[in-house]
Structures are given as structure tokens and as C-alpha cells.
Amino acid sequence: MVYDVYMFYDAFLKVIRHAEKHVPKEVLGYLFGNRYKWKDREYTVIKYAFPVRAHASEYYVEPREGELAKMADIAQRKYKVKLMVGWFHSHPGYGCFLSDVDLDSQRRYFFRPYHVALVVDPVRREFAFFKLKGNDYDAVPCQIIRKVKRGWNIGRRGGKS
């Protein structure tokens, strides 16, 4: 079973914390990771989220000049990820969807099949991933995942004495 999008929980937390911190203003950022295929189905893995400084109001957000280049540089140099797989922004209090402006941005800059848009509503505490579908867009199946931490299992070793 292959979902369209897998996002690491740490990156997801970064997005929602950033969005909640800036309520009622919108926030914006970029998503980095990679794309893979499995059984002839392509999927996107989001490993990192980078919020950017933006000009923002309750209904408007736009990255400041040079922020995208800066984020891409950080992603490449610090985290060794080269692929920008999408972007995220928030809709504080008015739900998760792509507005006409959002859709236009998606068509202009994130038109590849693996590109996603994550929209978060930090007031309603909702989120959704979207991808372009023809001239329109659609929500896509997703999983937020976290690597399982392995413990020492001291008590189990050796069985009963």
C-alpha cells in the first residue's frame, strides 16, 4: 500500500508549531525531501520543513526576497537534501484548501508530479496535503510517520532466572 505523501513527524511538528505561534497571521515555508517509487507508483517523502520570513497578514503571505534561495542553500549544505518537494502555508481559522492564488502558485512553481502543498489551519488544528490534478487540485493520501526508537530491553534479555 503506497500513500502519495509521507512526512516525518519532526518536520510536521515544526510546521504546526510555527503556524500556531504566528496566529492570526499566515505563515509560509518550503518542504524538502525526496521522491521514490514502489510498485510503479511514485511517492514523496518530506524530511524537513523550513519556515521562511514572509510578508504576512491574516489572509495573505508572501516570502521575502531571497528567502527561497537561502532555504535551498541551507537544505543542501546542512541537511544534504537537494529536492524541494513542495511548500506549506497556513490558513488560520478558515480551513484547509488551495485558494485561487495558492493554486496559481502551485501551477507556477510546484507543477511536478511529486510536488505537494501542505495547508495547515492552526486554529481548527487541521491539515491536508494537495497536489495538482489537471486544471484543478485534489487532496492526496498521506501519512505522518516517526521512526520507532529502539530501547535496550534490559528486562527481556536472558528470560526468567
Binding site: V2, Y3, D138, P141
Partner: peptide, 16 residues
């Protein structure tokens, strides 16, 4: 990996 949130595998939707 453990799953924290997920949609149905064949349908995207808004999640809480």
C-alpha cells in the same frame, strides 16, 4: 516507523 496520522490509503482528506 510508527504512523502518527494518516488518511485512508486511497483518499486524501483534511485531518485533525
Amino acid at each position: 516507523y510508527e504512523v502518527i496520522y494518516q488518511t485512508p490509503p486511497d483518499k486524501g482528506m483534511v485531518l485533525k
